[in-house]
């Protein structure tokens, strides 16, 4: 007597599991197909290996090289270098940068590649990393701060 409802329940469970596996598979395939298009920016290595055509609007993201931020004579134009461990790209930008835009930290420049290979940004976004450090530790580098956090845990 109790055999029939058990069977139906198991049938539904199997059906639901098959549907779930198919769904997850479809989602993963879609995400995989999107993996390059869904990226928010080019990394310097990708930018150097496969440069976008000059004049096409793109985003370039990486770390701001230490000691590379310079303000030009006009007072509003800055130049800096965005790099990763494989390539470095010089960037010029005219305007106001966000507070979190500092050397040694992440940034995304929106703009166009110039024919000479440099990058002219129309807009600069700062990228925050995953570290949250109180202001008292602000003189430390991210690495030291992370160690300090490790020690106090």
């Amino acid at each position: 007597m109790s055999l029939t409802p058990m069977k139906a329940k198991h049938q539904r469970l199997v059906l639901a599991l098959i549907a779930l596996v198919a769904l997850i598979g479809a989602g993963l395939l879609a995400a995989w197909a999107l993996r390059s298009q869904a990226s928010f920016f080019y990394l310097p290595a990708e930018y150097a290996a496969n440069p976008p055509e000059a004049g096409r609007p793109v985003r370039l993201g990486g770390m701001v090289e230490k000691g590379s931020i310079r303000t030009l004579a006009d007072g509003v134009t800055i130049t800096f270098v965005i790099h990763d461990d494989k390539a470095r790209v010089p960037v010029t930008f005219k305007g106001i940068v966000p507070d979190l835009f500092v050397e040694g930290s992440g940034a995304v420049a929106e703009g166009r590649r110039q024919p000479d290979g440099t990058f002219r940004a129309d807009n600069v976004l700062a990228k925050h990393d995953e570290n949250y450090v109180p202001r008292e530790m602000k003189d430390m580098t991210s690495e030291q701060a992370r160690q300090a956090i490790e020690e106090t845990k």
Partner: peptide, 11 residues
């Protein structure tokens, strides 16, 4: 983690 994003990875 999959894509370059402006949002930071999980802390």
């Amino acid at each position: 983690l999959w894509w370059n994003s402006l949002h930071q990875p999980p802390s």
